[in-house]
Structures are given as structure tokens and as C-alpha cells.
């Protein structure tokens, strides 16, 4: 059943990795504001397109 060690080790590595990521994200105030991000994604600052007189139509 030794393979279980590998699986647990691998799973734990992932879990600990994400734990660290979680702590990092909390510490860097990633979740400080839990409202604006949801609004922000709705706005795309449309920039007037001036580039290539788009010929690149199909493919």
C-alpha cells in the first residue's frame, strides 16, 4: 500500500502550496475589497481602434 504515501505526499504538497498561496493572497490584501473586482471586470476601457485596416478576416 506504499503508493498511498506518494499520493498523500503529492496531495499534501498541493494543499500546502495552496495554503501558502492563500496566506500570501490574504497578506497582500487580495481579498481586502470583495466587491469592486466583480464590478471592474464588466468595464473594458474601450480604446478607439486605429490599427491595421483589418484585412485579416478569415484565419
Amino acid at each position: 500500500m506504499s503508493v498511498i504515501f506518494i499520493l498523500i505526499l503529492a496531495s499534501l504538497t498541493i494543499a500546502v502550496g495552496f495554503l501558502v498561496a492563500f496566506i500570501w493572497s490574504v497578506k497582500t490584501n487580495q481579498f481586502e475589497d470583495d466587491y469592486t473586482p466583480s464590478i471592474r471586470i464588466l468595464f473594458e476601457n474601450e480604446v478607439k481602434q486605429v490599427d491595421e485596416p483589418i484585412k485579416d478576416k478569415n484565419r
Partner: peptide, 25 residues
Amino acid sequence: GNFLANEDAEAPALEKTFAKHGKEH
């Protein structure tokens, strides 16, 4: 349609400082 391969966008560069501490959570 009229495909746009490269779409222009603009945004300020990322500041180095962290955001202020807001309300308690």
C-alpha cells in the same frame, strides 16, 4: 464579421505600494 487580431487597450502600470487597509473583515 471583421476580425480584430490585436485589440488596443490601455491601463496604468501597477503601483508598487499596497492598497490601504479598509474595513474590518
